[in-house]
Design a protein around this nucleic acid. Sequence first.
DNA 1: TGCAAAGTAGAACGGTCATTCTACTTTGAG
DNA 2: CTCAAAGTAGAATGACCGTTCTACTTTGCA
Lengths: 182, 182
Amino acid sequence: MSIKREKILRTADRLFYEHGFRGVGLKQIIKEADVATMTLYNHFDSKDKLVEEVLLTREERYWSYLDHDVEEGGESPFIAAVAAHGRFLKQESYKGCMFLRAIQDYANTDNQIEQIARQHKTKLLTYFQQLAERKGKTQQKEIAYQMTLLLEGATSMTELIGAEAATAHSITMARMMIRESS
Amino acid sequence: MSIKREKILRTADRLFYEHGFRGVGLKQIIKEADVATMTLYNHFDSKDKLVEEVLLTREERYWSYLDHDVEEGGESPFIAAVAAHGRFLKQESYKGCMFLRAIQDYANTDNQIEQIARQHKTKLLTYFQQLAERKGKTQQKEIAYQMTLLLEGATSMTELIGAEAATAHSITMARMMIRESS
DNA sequence: TGCAAAGTAGAACGGTCATTCTACTTTGAG
DNA sequence: CTCAAAGTAGAATGACCGTTCTACTTTGCA
């Protein structure tokens, strides 16, 4: 894959994440990525398409955190997932959830952005539901909602108390939930 | 207080909430509030000031939900707070947290918006800490962080599964937390 | 070495933005 | 009724937006 393309994606991800999709102009992305206007437009049809690709790339990165850690099989896979989420928060998502912002910023517009962001969220929920089934907790699909809620809560709390503290609290709470439902 | 001013505030709150601060122009607010451009500017110095006032007004409304229900003294005040938060979600905040969005959209700008939004969040945390002290749970200030995390999680989950379901899960989880720490 | 593909700078376009201005009308209290 | 305060419509301003265009240069492979 093109180096320029990757540089644009990395720069856009950083700027969108720090100032919001609508708060960043292509001019700034072009300047900070050190590319020409037409280079960006040769790789991405429009700003909306660029936003879509940024989201898809970020989602890939997110799952690489979870996939890597959860299959280790040490403690409960739920705890591993919460911890992996925390690691993602600390390293790449220290201020809020880009997907949530995309859902809200592009609500009721005629592009695919909202849909892509929403799919990320439902995929997470489905993931926990499958994990619950595999652990024989078919009766308590509630645990999947609880884990998702904890991750969302940790992400928001990161804005307030930092990633480490937010993650620590979410792990503590996850342990309690698992104990109750076993 | 001026009727026009209130109408502008109500319209701005609704539009900002639905499409984001940067996604709504003053022209649209002026049109939907049915006022003249200069009427808006006579009441609010700038768009940023309008955003600030919208946030302050929304905060007032938020606390009226919590203050009303928590002092009733029925079940645990923590549960009452989580339930009141859920009622707020259902009626006025069915898609994400406006304060969180303000913190992110106006990060590192030279206005007061980020500060106002951040204060709302810390006030919530402080509120739970005081509640914990009053209940003699001085040792476990952790409960305050846990409750705040649950509220934040419920708010984000509302986007995904709706306010009722999100609130139900957060109450269930709050009950477990309180049982553990008593 | 040749040549197509990729990248370049920067101007130009039409649109929207927040904000200001002007000149006019309505409102409501004394 | 008087008159100041409040509200009105809409044009003007300058800045910035996403997008397109043009003409040029670099790159890397056959």
